[in-house]
Design a protein around this nucleic acid. Sequence first.
DNA 1: CCATTGACTTAAG
DNA 2: CCTTAAGCCAATG
Length: 114
Amino acid sequence: MNINERHADFFENVYAIVRHIPKGRVTSYGAIAKALGTVSSSRMVGWAMNAAHSKPDIPAHRVVNRNGFLTGKMHFSSPTEMEEKLTLEGIEVINDQIHQFNIVFWDPSEELTF
DNA sequence: CCATTGACTTAAG
DNA sequence: CCTTAAGCCAATG
């Protein structure tokens, strides 16, 4: 592959996983990064999400940090959009944090059955 | 081109 | 248990 495709591949990988997050479930940046084998590059997952705005069907609202906080809510069209969408999917959000995060958490590894 | 920042996480003190 | 440091790497000034 070309040297220029090296980061794009990572981005596409992130998109693929995020798209596969089941409705009513959430995951974390680190979990995605870990699934890609680059657990230390969890920041790049967040950056990929920022770039994901140009992509359709990317439920970025289902991706939160490892504490279940909606750290990225401010990056949406509306600061409340992320919270609203999660609530509509049956996820309880309290004070910008996902309630029972450990229950609704979705491990990307399950979808690694490519 | 160098410095700073950021939708993160883990480890160490 | 709470606070800091460091690693990560692209983007922006």
